[in-house]
């Protein structure tokens, strides 16, 4: 599933990021790489969503959220 399909307040693990290199690098520099845990805060809108990773909140555009493959993580 993609990050855009995710639910609010659920934590996911990034499986892959499939977007142009420039943007991928930018996300990597922010610490969003394969394996990073990311928690969706607000995915109610059609377009962009807000999420938290590596301790910081971010607003991510739809195009980014559509191109991040994630899987659910059950926090024990």
């Amino acid at each position: 599933m993609t990050l855009k399909q995710g639910k609010n307040n659920q934590t996911y693990q990034v499986l892959s990021i499939d977007i142009e290199v420039k943007l991928e690098r930018r996300l990597e520099a922010l610490g969003l790489t394969q394996g990073t845990h990311i928690t969706i805060l607000n995915n109610d809108k059609k377009g962009s969503l807000t999420a938290k990773f590596r301790g910081t909140r971010f607003a991510l555009g739809k195009r980014i959220a559509d191109h991040i493959e994630v899987k659910e993580v059950s926090l024990s």
Binding site: R26, T50, T56, R57, F58
Partner: peptide, 11 residues
């Protein structure tokens, strides 16, 4: 086609 994509920290 729009290249932009929003990416901004929310303090």
């Amino acid at each position: 086609k729009a290249e932009h994509a929003l990416l901004i920290e929310l303090p």
